[in-house]
Nucleic acid binder design. Structure first.
Length: 215
DNA sequence: GACCAGGCACATC
DNA sequence: GATGTGCATGGT
């Protein structure tokens, strides 16, 4: 099977096996963006604890996040790990949205995706994956999110070189599936789902809904 | 106790 | 431009 056909087949298999994922798990665009930053190199379980803390303090709020001292914020998000750097990163985003979009995330929506992406990448602490996560899941733009699991699945199945970079993987997937934000949304979520079960550092491929046994 | 988790920036060569 | 390192908590 050709590479692109195989990738499309992965999506179909995953969807059939796991069903619709319905991401992102958040009550608002801001909560989604906060989650996107907090989950950098961190298990979602730990992120949830930090978000619960933020909700208790009623801090899912741009103005309040702007006012709270960074060391207090850091303490509240402690369970998410890297809390000192992540508190700064949250503050950096808040400063950006206040200065450029009148403190309203909705004001970003009408702008072109590529321009938004460049703007997001200019914020210290927002890299390619976090930028695409914000575009896709918070702003409902057409952007595909590549992560560690995407790399493992593609490289272990021999669909991309071991040292492929973010953009190479993203373009391969964009060329392989329908250009449709619903599919981008579901495919990434499904990759994380199967990744958590089967694509750890040492793969346990038994029962993996993708077709190959790599053991 | 070791290993790992839905990255990113920065230093150094 | 590639490669290495710090950042940190909590689950298995």
């Amino acid at each position: 099977m050709k590479i692109k056909r195989k990738i499309k087949d992965f999506y179909l298999r995953l969807f059939k096996h796991y069903g619709q994922q319905g991401w992102w798990p958040a009550d608002s665009r801001l909560e989604c963006i906060i989650g996107a930053i907090l989950t950098q190199n961190t298990s979602w379980r730990n992120v949830e604890k930090a978000i619960i803390n933020l909700k208790k303090e009623k801090l899912i709020d741009i103005k309040k996040l702007n006012l709270i001292p960074v060391n207090e914020l850091s303490n509240i998000i402690r369970p998410s790990g890297y809390h000192n750097v992540k508190a700064k990163r949250l503050k950096n985003f808040i400063k950006f949205i206040i200065e450029n979009y009148d403190a309203k995330i909705e004001n970003m929506i009408n702008k072109e995706t590529e321009i938004l992406r460049t703007e997001l990448l200019s914020i210290n602490g927002i890299g390619p994956e976090t930028a695409d996560t914000i575009l896709l899941y918070a702003l409902e733009k057409r952007a595909f999110v590549v992560d560690k699991y995407t790399h493992r699945i593609l490289s272990r199945h021999g669909l991309i070189p071991e040292k492929a970079n973010y953009k190479e993987m993203q373009e391969l997937i964009l060329d392989s599936i329908e250009k449709n934000s619903y599919i981008y949304n579901e495919f990434h979520a499904l990759i994380v789902k199967v990744g958590k079960e089967h694509c750890k550092k040492s793969p346990k491929c038994n029962g993996c809904p993708l077709e190959y046994d790599l053991g």
